[in-house]
Amino acid sequence: MLDLDKTNFEAEVLKAEGYVFVDFYGDGCVPCQALMPKVHEFADTYGDKLKFTSLNTTKARRLAIAQKVLGLPVMAIYKDGEKVEELVKDDCTPETIEAMIKKYI
């Protein structure tokens, strides 16, 4: 799982070729913390087929807003730098996240 910040988000996601998974989380977000171990498990299981990244939005607020992320958690798939699918807030469950990952591997 690659930790992103505002210095490398562009290079690692927006300018990356192919599919990238991004876990948008934040410091005060308890639902995000609850999901994190699951997302890391998925990264271990599917990491050889899909690039897994995460962004702490607390330290990259403007960047998150520019990505139309204004509510957490958000699990998103980017393709060639464009967001192609996302799960927002209550739609993020271990089951839905895994189903989304499986669509892109």
């Binding site: 934040g26 005060g28 977000c29 639902p31 995000c32 939005t57 204004l70 958690p73 807030k89």
Partner: peptide
Amino acid sequence: YCATCDANF
């Protein structure tokens, strides 16, 4: 519906 999650934005 979650201030602690999203207030920061």
